[in-house]
Design a binder for these strands. Structure first.
Length: 330
DNA sequence: CATCAGGGCCCTG
DNA sequence: CAGGGCCCTGAT
């Protein structure tokens, strides 16, 4: 009988080192670290001004805590890195620099606001979320797992699949008084039979999960190198992975690799939401959506859509958005 | 009880 | 290039 990793007590990350991150202003802490449109996951936790996240990095299980210590125009983040043994010199810096990339802290968005600030849709949104960044605090491999459990599933089912995977293959970590799940390595899954994955109710996705982790375990893919690839080449690489189609590629191009103009496709769910946001209609064709955002926002089109999208989901937290509710299938 | 669609993707003809 | 099948779940 397989002993699940999470049946063990959590790893205590009792060592902590503190450093600072300095985002390029303007910077909006909460809208960057927390994306209300994303499904909840036990690898992170957000409270206003604070964010906890597990990170599998440098072959370690780490806990990171980000705290807002600045203002929009003079931003500063206190970063606490928790580990089970003291980190070697330089390791905290490597974590800081990786987070800098994953939270997109070094991008200068001033021309984005300058060029699009007069847009009637974006103007009010900028007023609320100026300084918001794209964020994917997962590695490419980890994000591919998320993209896979999103496929053809309602929110509840995606959450269930993700938590089943964390329970079976992840590691519980404990730091700063919180317990979170931490991702497994692709190597750990590479040895697992598809049938075992299917038992976690991931269905046909078992094959994709299995083949994707092998692509990483065998080092066919190099995330760091992919960060510098031209968009066309990158897209082709991603599409070549089994179980990765246009919808997953779209999320990854934008969220993981920060291609702000990536709107090659619009999947059905987003299509309905953008139709409302852009045209006030129930269903506008994807071609019309792509044409409109390209004409209107050019090289910033996906970042602009991200602002509109998260804005409506933030709004939903405090008030009812009657047209949005039926679109969110729990 | 049966049927269906859901925040896709692969494979076939 | 269109369309069927795929896993599972909750809604009808």
């Amino acid at each position: 009988m397989r002993r699940t990793t999470t049946s063990r007590p959590p790893i205590a990350l009792d060592h902590c080192q503190v450093t600072r991150l300095h985002p390029v202003p303007p910077f909006h802490f909460d809208a960057t670290v927390h994306k209300p449109s994303h499904f909840p996951s036990s690898d992170n936790h957000h409270e206003p001004g604070k964010y906890w996240q597990s990170v599998r990095f440098l072959d370690r299980h780490l806990g990171v805590k980000l705290e807002n210590r600045g203002q929009t125009d003079s931003p500063e983040i206190k970063l606490s890195v928790y580990s089970n043994e003291p980190l070697r010199s330089g390791e905290v810096d490597r974590v800081a620099s990786e987070l800098d990339y994953r939270f997109d802290l070094h991008t200068d968005l001033s021309s984005f606001y300058a060029e699009l600030g007069d847009d009637p849709l974006l103007g009010p949104v900028f007023a609320r979320w100026r300084g918001m960044r794209v964020k994917a605090c997962q590695s490419l491999y980890e994000f591919l797992v998320i993209a896979t459990v999103l496929q053809n599933a309602t929110v509840r089912r995606s959450v269930q699949m993700m938590e089943n995977l964390f329970h079976q293959y992840g590691t519980r970590i404990r730091f700063d008084g919180r317990e979170l799940a931490c991702f497994w390595d692709p190597e750990a899954l590479a040895a697992v039979e598809e049938a075992e994955l299917r038992a976690l109710k991931v269905g046909y996705r078992a094959r994709a999960l299995s083949l994707i982790c092998r692509a990483f375990a065998s080092h066919e893919l190099d995330e760091m190198q992919m960060r510098t690839m031209p968009a066309d080449e990158l897209r082709k690489r991603l599409l070549g992975l089994y179980g990765v189609g246009p919808a997953s590629v779209w999320y990854i191009m934008f969220e993981v690799f920060h291609h702000y103009d990536e709107v090659e496709t619009v999947s059905p769910w987003e299509q309905k939401i953008y139709s409302r946001l852009l045209f006030g209609q129930e269903s506008v064709s994807r071609e019309d959506i792509v044409a409109e955002v390209t004409r209107r926002w050019g090289r910033w089109r996906m970042l602009a859509l991200h602002y509109l999208f998260e804005d409506i989901f933030w709004k939903r937290k405090t008030q009812t958005v009657d047209w949005l509710e039926p679109l969110i299938r729990l």
